[in-house]
């Protein structure tokens, strides 16, 4: 049974200055099963973030419908927690531990219980003992881990991640991908993960959805990645998937570059 359903979803934005509308996503159809790690891949500007924003309930589709567990999405909910692209969603006036416990505090959990869960969540993302630091005192990679711990600690039904490792250096990114894969293998929660990096999508996803070039992108193809357990870039299966997805993306990036030049 489908857990997340996007039925013929489209989204256009009305520009307040020029009064013109621009299409960000069109005719987007997708069903995601519980426990899937779905990677949404596409060239920059094709509408990936817009899809995620609608799944989170921050924006409403202008056409079509989004359902979670059969219910239409009406607004944001802690069932669908978000890890944002940049680190401007952390609260700089709170310590790392207080950032992580934010959701538990909002739910009114007693502080002793909170502390225990926060400690565990910090451990899960490899930041044990760093809880008393403020975001400004942490590196970019550590801040992304805080964001991930903050979302994991409330055990959302769905984790929505928008290029969470996009701003990290290659080394840190590889470590984080590895950690996230381990966390997902352990928890098997439903994840929608946005990226423009083919390598990242194939290392992490159970399925990879490739979008057409934007603006006004839609889903072009979905590739199922059948590699169990921890994944390895030297695995011949990985290379085959890479070539397949790369072929799709190459056409779309070429289109988007042409569109930009025009």
């Amino acid at each position: 049974m489908a857990f997340l359903e996007l039925k013929n979803v489209s989204k256009s934005f009305v520009s307040s200055r020029s009064r013109s509308t621009s299409l960000a996503v069109r005719d987007f159809d997708l069903e995601i099963a519980p426990g899937e790690f779905f990677c949404l891949l596409g060239p920059s500007g094709c509408g990936k973030s817009t899809v995620l924003t609608m799944l989170a309930g921050f924006e409403h589709p202008t056409g079509g419908e989004i359902r979670v567990n059969g219910q239409p999405v009406e607004g944001p909910s802690k069932d669908r927690c978000v890890v944002f692209q940049g680190d401007d969603s952390l609260y700089p006036w709170l310590t790392a531990a207080h950032n992580v416990e934010f959701g538990l505090r909002m739910a009114g959990m007693p502080s002793a219980e909170r502390r225990q869960k926060v400690e565990a969540a910090l451990g899960l993302v490899g930041l044990s003992g760093q809880g008393s630091k403020f975001p400004a005192e942490l590196s970019g990679g550590m801040r992304q881990r805080i964001q991930i711990a903050r979302a994991l600690v409330i055990q959302p039904k769905v984790l929505l991640m928008d290029e969470p490792f996009g701003a990290l250096d290659a080394q840190t990114r590889h470590v984080m991908q590895h950690e996230l894969r381990k966390i997902w293998l352990a928890t098997k929660s439903t994840v929608v993960f946005i990226t423009h990096d083919i390598d990242e999508a194939i290392l992490l996803g159970t399925r990879v959805g490739v979008m057409t070039a934007g603006p006004g992108g839609t889903l072009r193809d979905v590739v199922t990645i059948n590699i169990e357990g921890e994944r390895d870039r030297l695995d011949p299966a990985y290379t085959r998937y890479y070539a397949e997805v790369h072929g799709m993306i190459r056409d779309e990036v070429a289109k988007s570059v042409r569109a930009m030049a025009a």
Binding site: A56, F58, G75, K78, R80, F84, S89, L90, G103
Partner: peptide, 9 residues
């Protein structure tokens, strides 16, 4: 948005 997605009223 982060607060909303973490369940804040």
């Amino acid at each position: 948005r982060a607060a909303q997605a973490l369940g804040a009223t």
